[in-house]
Computed example of a mutant assay.
Amino acid sequence: MAFTSDLDQITRAAAGDPAAVRALVGRYSPGVLSLATRMLGDRTEAEDVTQETFIRAWKALPGWEPRAKFSTWLHRVALNLCYDRLRKKRESLPGELPDQADRSLGPAEAYDQTQRVGAIEQAISRLPERQSAALTLCALQGHSQAEAAEILDISVEALESLLARARRTLRAELLEGSTSR
């Protein structure tokens, strides 16, 4: 069954159409899972947040009004759930390092690259929640500043300020870390 638009799928999903529900989950769950994984640093928790995001979405769909793009709204729900989990644990646990080593590199270079990726991820996890979220949305997930601002429910100017502070903090921390080796 072909759908003409997100709105058509949303309308059908709100009415209980399982094909529409599957289509929306298929389209949006990778982005929600990616955001949650980067925010929480834990794939299992991120999967839980993704599932909870869609449960909340389905409950809200019958009354949902398209004031924002559906994807923006879903990311906002996921981000709020991530904030809740981060507040509950308060200690940041480093996440699993992705397999990002370039296969053309030798073992020493691949190790160095993995160490740099790990240092960056740990530094991002230590940022204040909103700075981490802004950086994750824009730099790691590729959202435009306007989309990220909408997800965070702030102005573009406030987002730019968060990004500037996050980058400045990261730069300082990473430079400090590289000089202490």
Rank of each mutant, 00 (worst) to 15 (best):
M1C: 06
M1K: 12
T4L: 12
S5E: 09
S5F: 08
D6M: 03
D6Q: 11
D6V: 09
L7D: 15
T11R: 15
T11A: 14
A14P: 09
D17V: 09
D17A: 12
D17F: 07
P18I: 03
A19S: 08
A20L: 09
R22L: 12
V25C: 11
V25F: 15
V25S: 00
G26K: 07
G26E: 10
R27K: 15
Y28L: 09
S29T: 04
S29L: 01
S29Q: 14
P30C: 06
G31W: 00
G31T: 10
S34L: 08
L35M: 14
A36F: 04
A36G: 08
R38N: 15
L40H: 00
L40A: 02
G41W: 02
A46F: 09
A46C: 10
E47N: 08
E47Q: 14
E47H: 07
E47P: 06
D48H: 12
D48G: 07
V49N: 02
T50W: 01
Q51Y: 03
T53A: 07
T53R: 02
R56P: 04
R56L: 15
A57M: 13
A60K: 11
A60P: 05
E65H: 11
R67K: 14
W73I: 06
H75S: 13
H75T: 03
A78Q: 02
N80V: 06
C82K: 03
Y83F: 10
D84F: 06
D84W: 04
R85V: 14
R85W: 08
R85C: 02
L86V: 02
L86H: 02
R87W: 05
K88W: 03
K89L: 06
S92V: 14
P94L: 13
G95Y: 04
G95L: 07
L97W: 05
P98M: 05
D99R: 10
Q100R: 09
R103H: 05
L105H: 08
G106C: 06
G106R: 05
P107A: 13
A108Y: 04
E109S: 13
A110S: 14
A110N: 08
Y111S: 13
D112N: 10
D112I: 04
Q113M: 10
T114K: 11
T114S: 15
T114E: 13
R116A: 15
R116Y: 04
V117T: 14
G118R: 03
I120W: 06
E121L: 15
I124V: 15
S125R: 12
L127H: 05
S132R: 15
S132G: 14
A134K: 00
L135A: 09
L137D: 02
C138D: 01
L140Q: 11
Q141C: 09
G142I: 02
Q145C: 11
Q145D: 13
I154Y: 00
I154A: 08
S155G: 15
E157Y: 01
A158E: 08
L159Y: 03
L162N: 13
L163I: 12
A164S: 11
R165N: 12
R167T: 12
R168I: 00
T169N: 12
R171E: 14
L174K: 01
S178L: 09
T179P: 00
S180C: 01
S180F: 03
R181C: 01
